[in-house]
Design a protein around this nucleic acid. Sequence first.
RNA 1: GCUACCGUGGCUCAGUCGGUAGAGCAGCUGAUUCGUAAUCAGCAGGUCGGGUGUUCGAGUCACCUCGGUAGCUCCA
Length: 637
Amino acid sequence: MFEVILPDGNKIESEISENWLSFIKREIGESLARAAVAVSINDRLVDVTAEVESGNMSVITMKNPEGVAIMRHSASHIMADAVQKLFPGTKVTIGPSIENGFYYDFDSPHRFSVDDFEAIEKKMSEIVKGRYPFMRKVVTKEAAIELFTKMGENYKVEIIEDLGEPFVSLYYHGDFVDLCRGPHVPNTGFVKAFKLMSVAGAYWRGDENKSMLQRIYATAFPNKESLDEYLKMLEEAKERDHRKIGADLDLFAFSENVGGGLVLWTPNGGIVRTVIENFWRKQHVRNGYNLVFTPHIGRSLLWETSGHLGFYKDGMYNPMDIDGEDYYVKPMNCPFHVMLYKRKKWSYREFPFRWAELGTVYRYEKSGTLNGLKRVRGFTQDDAHLFCRLDQLEDEIKRVLDFSLFMLKSFEFESFKLFLSTRPKEYVGEIEVWNRAESALKDVLEASGLPWEIQEGDGAFYGPKIDINITDSIGRLWQLSTVQVDFNLPERFDISYTGEDGQEHRPIMLHRALLGSIERFFGVLIEHFKGAFPMWLAPVQVAVLPVSEKHIETADKLLQKLVATGIRVKLDDRNEKVGYKIREWSVQKVPYIVVIGDNEADLKTITVRKRGGEQETFATEDFLSKLNSENFNGVYY
RNA sequence: GCUACCGUGGCUCAGUCGGUAGAGCAGCUGAUUCGUAAUCAGCAGGUCGGGUGUUCGAGUCACCUCGGUAGCUCCA
C-alpha cells in the first residue's frame, strides 16, 4: 500500500507495484506522463522508471530547472557515447550538467577540436533518434570495478574506489554504459536541441598536479527556440565584450612591451576614468570620508607585520633593494592606512575614522588568468579603511551599504544581490566578537530589504564580510562592492585607543571597496552600456559637424559656447560629407551630434541628433542648459 | 602556471601542394563644398609576433620564446 501526496495536497493510495511512469499515466494524466523526465519523491530525484514509493511526489518536466539539468546530464552521456564510437581509445571520466549546459571530460589519444564537432553532433543525433531507453542497474562495487576494468575505464574505477559505497548504479542506453548516480530522462529522444560549444583542458578532479583531460563543453535546451535564444544571448555578450569595444572606441590598450595585465588608459578612457574618480572623491567627502594618499612601496617589515609576506607572498612581486633594505610593491593599501592610524594616540571620542584612497596596487596573477580589464596585474582599488568601536560597527556597515548602493545606482545598476560570508574553520579573533560582527552584518542585510544569501564559512580568516553583486543590462552577475570586518590587522599592528575607562582598547577595522577596482569596474561599465555611456561619462559628449567649409565659423561659435559650459565637445571640420561624419560619430557612440548649416546661421536654434538617430530642434540656450544639467554642471569633469 | 587553439600593414581579413606577400577600411595628397550612418581619384604602408632549425628555397614545416583566446587551477 502506497500513499503518494501530490503537490496540490491530493493523496493517492495505490496497491499496485509499478513504476512511476505507469502510475502517473493512470493517476494523473497521459500528457504529463509523456512530458515527465523524472520524479521528485520526498525531495529526492529519481527516474520515472523507479518503483513507486510513499511520500510527497511531484513530476519533474523540462519546465522545471531540475528537469533541464537532468536532460543536460543525459545529453552528456549521449555525447560521451558518440565520442567513444567515433574515437576509439577514448576514456570517459565525468560529465555533469552545469549552468547553461554540460560538459564531459575525456582522456583520449585524439586531440579534439571544433572540427570534430560536426561529426560528434551527427552521431549524437543518431543516438537521439534511436530513442534508446536509459536503464538503471544497481551492482556491487566489485562487479562495477570488474566491468570498468575490463573496459579499460580506469578513471571510473578510481571514482568507484573512492566512493566507498558497497553498491553503485550504472546507466545504460543502447550499448553505452556509464557509472552514474542519475536520474536520467526516460530515453535519448528527450534530448531535442543541443550544440557543442568548445573544447578546453581540465585537470582530472580539478587538481593541477593530476593529468590534464580534454573537456568538451556543450549545451542543450528543451527545444530549438530556447537553444537559439541562448546562442543569441551569447552573441550579444560577445558584441558587448569590453575588449572589443575598448579597441573600437579607443578606451584602453595593452602592449606586450609593457607586459600582460598592465593597462594603458588612452585619452578617451582617461577622461572617463577622471570623471568616475572625481565623482567618487566628491561623494566620499560628502559621506564623511577623508581622502588619503599612500606610497606604492613599503619596507619588508611592514609586510611581515601585516602577514602578507607570510600568507600571500605568491601574489606579491619580488622585493627591490633600497639601501640594503627590502622594499615591496604594495598588493594592498591596508598596512599603510594602519600606519596612518598608528601615528598617534586616539581617544574613543574621535571614532569613527573613514580613510579612503584610490590606491593602485600590483599583484601577481598567473598569466592564464589575465583577462582584459577584468583581471589585471596592476589596478586601482577604490579602497577605504574604517576604524571604529564595536558598538559603532552596525552603524558603519549600514552606512557603507547605503553608500555603496548609491554609488552603483549612480552608474545605472538597478538590481542587486548581497552575500554574507561567515566564519570559516580557520579564523583569528574571539568567537564572541565574530558572533557580534556577524549578527551586526545580518541585521544590516535584513534591514536593507534586498535579496541576500548566506555563504556559510566563506569569510576570510580575519573576519566576516558582505559582498554586493549587481546584475548588468543582459542579466549577468558581477561582484563589485565588498565590506570586510578585520579582527586581524588591529591585532598584528597592535593598534589601540583610549576608552572612556582610561584603558587601552582594540578598535575594529573595516575594509571596503565600492566599485572594486577602477579597471574592472570600467570593463563592467563598458559591457553594461555596450560602450554607449551616459552623457556625463561619455569621452566626447557633443560632436559639432559643419555641413561645408563656409559653416565652420558658425560651428566654431557653437563649439566655444559648449566649451565654456564645460562640455566635452569636438568640432569635425574635416572636408567630408555630413553623412560620413554622422556615421563616424555614431559609431563612436557620441550622445549628441549637432549639424551646422545654413539653417543654423544665427545659432538661434539647432537640430540635435541624439544617439540612436532621433532628431530634435532646440533653442540653443535650451540645449546648453539641458546639457549642463545632464552633465551635473560639469562638476565631475 | 597547465591544456588546446590563434598571432599576416593601425583595423578586418585573403594567401592554394613550401617557390621571397594581396584586398577593404583607416592614413596621406588632390578634387569635390555637400544637410543626418560611408564622395571620387591617386599615393604610401607589412618580410608575415620574435628566435633557431629543416630545405636550393618558409608566411606556409619543426623546435624554442613572447603575446592573445577558451577553459582548468588560483583570486588575500
